[in-house]
Design a protein around this nucleic acid. Structure first.
Lengths: 239, 239
DNA sequence: CGTTATATTGAAGTGCGTCAAAAAGTGTGG
DNA sequence: CCACACTTTTTGACGCACTTCAATATAACG
């Protein structure tokens, strides 16, 4: 159940058997959600955190004019809101993009971990800091990269993150989200997203299809994106 | 020395005397830096974190074309790189914007805190999560807000954050950074930043001068920015 | 009081947005 | 297996927010 979480953590630091056991016992209930279901609403009081077991989720904020910014994408093995353990409520919504399964981690048990397992505590803390590192890279994308480079960068990031948990192929990965949602990650309109994807295709770099990304030229993508995986803090880069 | 840090933390949660003492003893050396000095370079191994005591710093990433994105601004009372405690090295540079004083917190002592003071550990963890929350709000700004709204939002945020540590006036605050640096926070060029500030002035909302921000109409600024301070996680909103 | 950094303005260019419509894909029930 | 409704993708024409380049004005500073 927590295999993908372990893959993710062990790509960054050692996790002892005792710690793995603690993580296993951390998850109580498992729940399923359909695609496009709001799992956590901004502001509600929380006493548990969610571990994504399967599928893809996102976190987003929106403005009154209806424009929405996705601030993070999450894949299997990611905690969706580990930060809610210290924040108690979220400043954003959390929504499923595909059908998903999540494991529920009660804050009471997390608290126990902070009292008894300092190294594991630091690992969990690390994991929220990793989220922040990805936020920073997205800030760089949103503020300074062109839309095409931004798209290329997101594909590189997802490819690597999915690879860490065993969900990527050398030449691509499954991505069951539509162009509107991709556009909301990149701070552009769906129409422009479509043109950007067309350009990536015509450049011979990648094809983003219905529910799949096919990478034709990974090095070219990385070059266009100026992709530097340092911010993902992997011990040794996979792939 | 850690008074501003205590103000910041106590605006969010209770800090016991014992915890305050632990924080006090956390800071060993104090160092000073001139304006525009790179304090931490991306990638270097770190065994200490820095607490900003005075002045303003920023964290940034840049692209090969020279464009730079500031991903966070820091004021007195902020840890600049508490996240380096779990990350060991940073994915970005840290630079002073004004002359600054920083307190040095060795990771060894932080580690001791995680072994002995779980509540304080959670508070420090919270503090890095607060940074992430600000990153998310900036992602929203960069991706979806117009440049004017983005500027208005930054002014609202700084006004509130400075107020928490006693550095704001009802009608403004000191801000000793130039328009180029402001522009690097907002993902626009310095030329456009200048036009945006002109518009804020002409709208009667705020005047950003040399080293000072004068707020003429805080409510108007907040309305334009759609400023919702929830993401700053204050127990009760000051001001 | 000259020298350098910073702010300001103008004119022209471009990346992305907006509006609108058509094409292609997907799912459901008959 | 088709028919129909709905979602998603694709394309075109036009407009605007922001960029770029370049010059001037103003402030900061030794």
């Amino acid at each position: 159940m927590i295999e993908k979480l372990l893959l993710k953590l062990r790509a960054r630091d050692a996790v002892s058997d005792a710690e793995a056991a603690a993580l296993r016992s951390l998850i109580g209930e498992v729940r399923e959600f359909p695609a496009r279901h709001t799992v956590i609403r901004k502001g509600e009081a929380l006493d548990q955190s969610l571990l994504l077991l399967d599928g893809m989720m996102c976190r987003y904020k929106d403005l009154r004019n209806g424009r929405r910014q996705i601030s993070a994408l999450h894949v299997a093995g990611d905690f969706l809101d580990l930060h809610s353990f210290t924040l108690k409520r979220l400043d954003h919504d959390v929504m499923s993009l595909t059908p998903t399964r999540v494991g529920i981690a009660p804050h009471a048990r997390l608290r126990q971990i902070t009292e008894e397992l300092p190294h594991l505590t630091r690992l969990l803390w690390f994991s929220t800091n990793l989220d922040a590192a990805m936020h920073r890279e997205w800030e760089l994308s949103l503020g300074q990269r062109t839309a095409v480079a931004r798209a290329a960068h997101l594909l590189c990031e997802l490819h690597l993150r999915l690879d860490v948990v065993g969900l990527a192929r050398p030449q691509g990965f499954d991505l069951a989200i539509n162009q509107t949602e991709l556009a909301e990650c990149m701070g552009i309109t769906a129409v422009h997203m479509n043109r950007v994807l067309k350009e990536l295709r015509e450049l011979g770099l990648a094809t983003v299809r219905n529910k799949e990304v096919v990478i034709h030229d990974l090095d070219g993508l990385k070059r266009l994106a100026e992709f530097d995986p340092t911010y993902l803090y992997l011990r040794q880069q996979p792939l």
